[in-house]
């Protein structure tokens, strides 16, 4: 049985799709079977970021409405053969996602893949709540600024009340992924500090992804950043986050921060 991850944030433009693709590719590079599901019906982007936009025939809505089989809608990545994409529909809207249909699709994917990554749309409406509904693990993507942090707080509240796990009285595993972290702006003090974000949201830190041109460059060529340039700073940060996701205890480094001698010894405790 595979694990279902939802990548969510509440706010738009913080890096959900980029992170879904990057983490999916990083997990698949280790040989595990991964499917990334785009839940942003009507505003799909994941196909572009993964460079599969010209190969989309059927989508999630077709599968839910019984117009196509799941195997017909899945697109295999050309670079990593254990990485798949289930695209969203661009022409329909989110009302076409039914709870029963989503449940069926997720159950089928869980039995065939090691990891099912659900790329949630922004907002807290139907698309977002259905994307998180069946998750075992939630990755909350947050930028170090107040509006993003408050929206993430709202999403964490929903994860603790509206998911199937929460309704069954279980705890959903939640991780914070701090994205678009700008070391220069942090130094000038015009961004929230990592510790402040952690204090407000109080969930374990999965990783800090630095703001970088490499991310933009990667999505322009249609490749997850972890495939486009595996040695770039954001890619390395995503690889580390992936290892933590699988249970490894790695210290988190804040990009651009000069570490003291003691800091080097003790490191930063992650999660």
């Amino acid at each position: 049985m595979g694990k279902v991850i939802v990548v969510t944030s509440g706010k738009g433009g913080v890096g959900k799709t980029t992170s879904s693709a990057a983490l999916g590719a990083a997990l698949a590079q280790n040989g595990e079977k991964v499917v990334v599901v785009d839940f942003d019906v009507g505003l799909r982007n994941l196909d572009l970021v993964m460079g599969a936009e010209r190969r989309v025939v059927y989508d999630l809505v077709n599968v839910i409405q019984g117009e196509a089989k799941l195997t017909q809608a899945l697109i295999r990545d050309k670079r990593v053969e254990t990485l798949y994409l289930l695209p969203a529909s661009q022409t329909r809207d989110k009302d076409n996602l039914t709870p029963e249909g989503v449940e069926k699709v997720i159950a089928a994917l869980k039995s065939a893949f090691d990891w099912v990554i659900c790329d949630s749309p922004a907002g807290i409406e139907r698309g977002a709540t259905l994307a998180m509904r069946h998750a075992d693990i939630a990755i909350v993507v947050t930028n170090p600024e107040v509006s993003s942090v408050r929206d993430s707080d709202r999403i964490i509240g929903l994860l603790d009340s509206k998911t199937l796990k929460a309704e069954n009285g279980e705890r959903i595993e939640k991780h914070l992924l701090l994205t678009r972290y700008d070391a220069n702006r942090a130094e000038r003090g015009d961004m929230l500090k990592v510790d402040d974000v952690l204090e407000i949201l109080s969930i374990p830190l999965l990783g800090i992804i630095p703001e970088s041109m490499d991310v933009l460059r990667a999505s322009n060529v249609g490749a997850p950043v972890t495939l486009a340039d595996g040695r770039s700073a954001p890619a390395l940060a995503y690889f580390e986050a992936t290892r933590r996701l699988k249970g490894e205890d790695l210290p988190v480094t804040i990009p651009g921060e000069k570490r003291s001698f003691l800091g080097k010894i003790f490191g930063r405790k992650a999660a």
Binding site: D151, D153, R154, I156, G157, D160, S161, S202
Partner: peptide, 19 residues
């Protein structure tokens, strides 16, 4: 208590162990 959540208890005191 997360953003958007509401605790309503007109009967008496409320203690929150958390933020």
């Amino acid at each position: 208590v997360r953003s958007g959540q509401s605790i309503f208890f007109p009967e008496g005191d409320v203690t929150i162990v958390g933020s």
